[in-house]
């Protein structure tokens, strides 16, 4: 893909270059996972949130940190624990004895980039406080509404295997995240490099923010305006229809999901420095978008991943 994809020919302006530099910077830290990095940028530029699910030690947190750093703006990290309360995230209204009023103290969620580490360690109530903030872009405490800063991007991580004493996100809440992805083990060669070379996490410390909230907003706008040709729309529709028609699926993708698919495809195209959207963009974001939204039929014996692969393999590309 990367070799033959149409290059963004001569688009003037810093914007594209900045995005490319941010991407390069993150790729510097997260070695050999360009697709995952692209998906992360895609989620951000599509105006959604990202959930990274993987085993400990593969670099979830590093990726999230690198992303946060590269994006600039203010960023917050929330390490979720079991005794955490919703107020620890969204903030709390405090009674001031001096003037007999309540004052709102914003929690860590008030940031452009929020890294929600190990989200499954918190209780469902605490989780839903974050999820509500993500969905609504605002926080309501004691009847008062406080808007979150823009852009607002949450990268959450979750360990799928570490189940004892944790509260994995319920299926119904998963679609608050635009994309869900995993990182996976590095290749053998890369692992060797990790062993030999100095720890890349040190790079984080020297990392400079490349983007800033304003530019991210511009990029989000640019992504939303990207050209999507009719055949690509056909393809998107065909994928959505296939997800609904698939015999192993209990509930197919919703109209909201199809809207999200277009947004992601556009953002992905922008990340890949294209002027327009290709079916390839759709195809590459589709698993990250669909796997956690599809409900496989219990009796089918097929996992969501298998179903998504099946859909992709059998939907002709127009």
């Amino acid at each position: 893909m990367s070799e033959t994809a149409p290059r963004r020919s001569a688009r003037p302006g810093q914007l594209a270059d900045d995005l490319e530099r941010a991407r390069a910077a993150v790729n510097e830290v997260i070695v050999d996972k360009p697709d995952v990095v692209d998906l992360a940028f895609t989620a951000m530029l599509a105006g959604g949130h990202l959930l990274i699910e993987d085993l400990p030690g593969v670099g979830k947190t590093t990726l999230a940190q690198a992303l946060s750093l590269a994006m600039g703006g203010n960023w917050q990290r929330i390490q979720f624990t079991s005794d955490m309360l919703p107020a620890d995230i969204v903030g709390v209204s405090v009674f001031r004895r001096e003037d007999e009023t309540f004052e709102f103290r914003p929690g860590p969620v008030f940031a452009n980039v929020v890294l929600a580490d190990e989200i499954n360690r918190a209780t469902p109530r605490t989780q839903s406080a974050l999820l509500e903030a993500m969905a609504e872009g605002q926080v309501t405490v004691d009847g008062q509404t406080h808007p979150l800063p823009r852009p607002f991007f949450v990268i959450a991580t979750q360990n799928p295997l570490d189940l004892t004493g944790t509260y994995p996100l319920p299926d119904s809440q998963l679609d608050r995240f635009l994309l869900r992805t995993s990182i996976g083990y590095p290749s053998a060669a890369e692992e060797r490099r990790l062993l030999v070379e100095p720890d890349r996490r040190n790079l984080l410390e020297s990392m400079q923010p490349v983007l800033d909230p304003e530019r991210i907003s511009e990029l989000v706008d640019a992504a939303a305006a990207l050209h999507v040709a009719d055949p690509v729309l056909d393809y998107i529709q065909a994928l959505i229809a296939a997800s609904r028609a698939h015999a192993a699926v209990q509930t197919g993708l919703s109209p909201r999901a199809s809207l999200a698919l277009i947004q992601c495809a556009r953002a992905h195209a922008l990340v890949r420095q294209q002027d327009f959207c290709l079916p390839d963009n759709v195809k590459q974001v589709f698993p990250a978008l669909a796997v956690h939204r599809l409900q496989p039929l219990a009796e089918s014996g097929m996992s969501s991943e298998e179903i998504v692969a099946d859909i992709l393999a059998h939907t002709p590309v127009p």
């Binding site: 893909m1 033959t4 079916p279 992709l312 059998h314 590309v317």
Partner: peptide, 26 residues
């Protein structure tokens, strides 16, 4: 062309498989 393969995926694969035509296919 495999089922579900995008045109660019096909051409990229072809470019790899036919070294004489790589540039042309790209």
């Amino acid at each position: 062309r495999a089922s579900g393969e995008t045109p660019l995926e096909l051409l990229e694969r072809a470019a790899d498989a036919l070294p004489d035509h790589t540039v042309e296919l790209q």
